[in-house]
Design a protein around this nucleic acid. Structure first.
Lengths: 396, 396
DNA sequence: AGTCTTTGTCCATTCTCAGGAAGAAGTCGC
DNA sequence: GCGACTTCTTCCTGAGAATGGACAAAGACT
């Protein structure tokens, strides 16, 4: 069960491992083109990596005009586990060393049931994945939780929507259970990491990633590194005030962004509209299911329901207003929108874009793409796997 | 005139130079305590630095219980020039290698007169400082301009308040005139750099620095490095919207922060209050001087003028509202307030603090100091000198 | 088959760096 | 004043890092 995965001995080896992770198997010669090492040095380091078992030989590459080079790949048995705990559901996935997803489970769950219950469920899901044969053990695991995290210790800190999790030793506990190193981060940071690894943000150095799910958060990436802030609460934009003396918010303040948009507020507004008879379409869906969520609004909107479209547009304008401020402050090269509401699709995006392009200065928005995340539900688990492999593929 | 200042040959030497800059002259033994090098390696690098002339021997240190160590210091003849071009005035200063200011001049100036006129004035001020004997040449110069800068090239880019400066080769031109390397940056970034070098932000890794002068800008520091953004316009918070459909702003939008606070808006509000008879105190000052500025409001406020106090409080609330949003997003370890309005002092600060502490989440604000800058008028020139010395004290 | 290119390995050489030994230059207690 | 002990510097040696050249292996091309 417990694996003693080797670690690279120096920065060169770490570099090589990451190249193999992000670019897939390569020939020794191609590796040589990418790193600034002499052929002899490269051979030495590759041989050492072969000895540790982190990489394996993989046949011969095609000729580039002369002798064929030997292919090298990361040990195909390496497995990373990614866990993404949301407010109302969990995602668990297993990846291969190139961080491609081999197996993925999603289940509804209520994070308020506390860490013990949630851990039981996560471990059951992990066992199910294991039984399906994609992995028998893990070399590293990453887990995202919907709240601020003290990153070095791997513990949630004062999470507003997760009572009972404050200070819970997530890293320690999961590491015990799985027998491998564990990294813990905010779910939004992992989403940003995921989009940077395999999604729209590949090769972008400075960007942020707004996740609109039950709540609203934002992953901030500076120079290719996640910015977590002084207390680990960077990106906590759900409680930025968008309306002075506005709606009461669960946090105690008034007029917070989350009180107007995000899964909870949206569902409430939709149900209200249905009950007040402003939208026959939503009323029908409400009667059918007993409650409404973002997906229902998307359904109604695509059926041409005006009220739903208005809800999306208004929410998009609110979020856009906040994003516009942040764009002025941060001057990113990209803004990614993700989370549960991406189902609202182009209507939402158009509304956000309009607001941002109108409110920010041309220099900052001139060449600023605002796009939906590419990875959808697997962004978080992909980011979790990436976080772990970054840790494992760094000098011990 | 032209100096060929040597550059460190490697990262170790660069590290040593910065230690000597920031900690002053030290003994070889003390240097050894600070860097992770063997005695022999340290001796070699120090000897090489002595050869280049960048550092010089400086007698014997006090004994620490045994043989006395030799003191080392940066070559005392090194001189850095800092230039801080504001909207309405210029600061020019000369520093020693430890970035202490040896001579400082401030003159009113209108940046809208264009780069040629401004350059003439700056060069005249430099000549005056030279004649005063504090320097006969410079090893590096830093210059700040009140607008976005394409940092690698050292040219202003689309500066809203500086028509005629767009694309002007500031670095190139100044380097020609002075015969030394020149670095160009936004004035706000330099203020942040200055406070990090010698002010309140020493030893803080993540903070931002709001400069409220004629306009409003913000220097963003992440991990001890200035974050400039994708197009160099990071920190441009003056045109964040604080009031939907609010006052018309010079930028073309409505409700911008700058339309409500900052030197220009404040002066206009004060003059209006004076003319409308809402403040006898301001009316007296206006009659006396023909126009009003932030300093007059400070005068009136400290004389107990209610209207002036209201102006400060309202403005502080607006700025605080924006800062609160940015604190949620960025989770800094410190917020510094600087610029021309620091004269408004504690009233302003209290108003900002109230707003931030009320609107941001406890985790982000729990231990967040919001303070005035320590360096006042010399923050920009100190930052300019630091920027230059960072460049000079990095491997060639 | 012969030539050229590419790749992998071996080896000699150069550098870098750490740490021990020893001497230089202090302090401290008696 | 003197010996014992510390601290600092220099010198030296050995281990490892890294380079680049020589050479062989393997394939492409004529």
């Amino acid at each position: 069960m417990r694996r003693m995965t080797a670690r690279p001995a120096n920065a060169h080896q770490a570099r090589l491992l990451r190249l193999l992770r992000d670019g897939g198997p390569r020939s020794r010669a191609e590796l040589g083109d990418r790193v600034d090492l002499s052929r002899s040095k490269l051979a030495v380091e590759v041989d050492r990596l072969l000895e540790t078992g982190l990489v394996v030989a993989d046949g011969l590459a095609a000729s580039r005009g002369g002798r064929r080079s030997h292919n090298i790949r990361l040990a195909p048995g390496l497995r990373f586990l990614g866990v993404d705990i949301g407010a109302t559901s969990v995602d668990v996935a297993v990846t291969n060393p190139e961080l491609e997803i081999l197996g993925h489970l999603n289940q509804p769950m209520d994070v308020r049931e506390g860490p013990v219950a949630v851990f039981d469920q996560v471990l059951a899901m992990v066992a199910k994945l294991r039984d399906s044969g994609v992995a028998d053990g893990f070399d590293g695991a990453g887990i995202g939780v919907p709240g601020p995290v003290r990153f070095p210790e791997g513990t949630p800190v004062a999470p507003p929507i997760m009572p009972g999790w404050d200070g819970f030793p997530v890293r320690e506990a999961l590491s015990q259970e799985l027998g491998c190193p564990v990294m813990v981060d905010n779910d939004v940071n992992l989403m940003a990491t995921g989009e940077m690894q395999a999604g729209v943000a590949r090769s972008v150095r400075d960007f942020f990633c707004v996740k609109i799910g039950t709540g609203i958060g934002c992953g901030v990436v500076v120079g290719g590194e996640v910015h977590r802030g002084t207390t680990g609460s960077a990106g906590d934009i759900g409680h930025i005030q968008v309306e002075p003396d506005g709606r009461q918010c669960a946090c105690g303040n008034r007029g917070c962004l989350e009180a107007y948009f995000g899964g909870a507020a949206l569902a409430r507004d939709a149900e209200e509209a249905a009950r007040e008879g402003r939208s026959p379409e939503l009323a029908r869906l409400l009667a059918e299911k007993g409650r409404l969520d973002a997906a229902d609004i998307a359904t109604a909107a695509s059926a041409g329901d005006g009220t739903s479209l208005d809800l999306i547009r208004d929410g998009g304008a609110r979020v856009g207003q906040v994003i516009a401020s942040l764009v002025s402050f941060f001057n990113p090269g990209l803004v990614v929108i993700g989370g549960g509401v991406t189902g609202l699709g182009h209507t939402l995006l158009a509304s956000i874009r309009t607001q941002v392009y109108r409110q920010s200065l041309p220099l900052a928005t001139g060449n600023l793409p605002i796009v939906l995340g590419e990875l959808g539900q697997v962004a978080g688990v992909t980011g979790a796997a990436r976080l772990t492999s970054d840790h494992l593929f760094s000098p011990a």
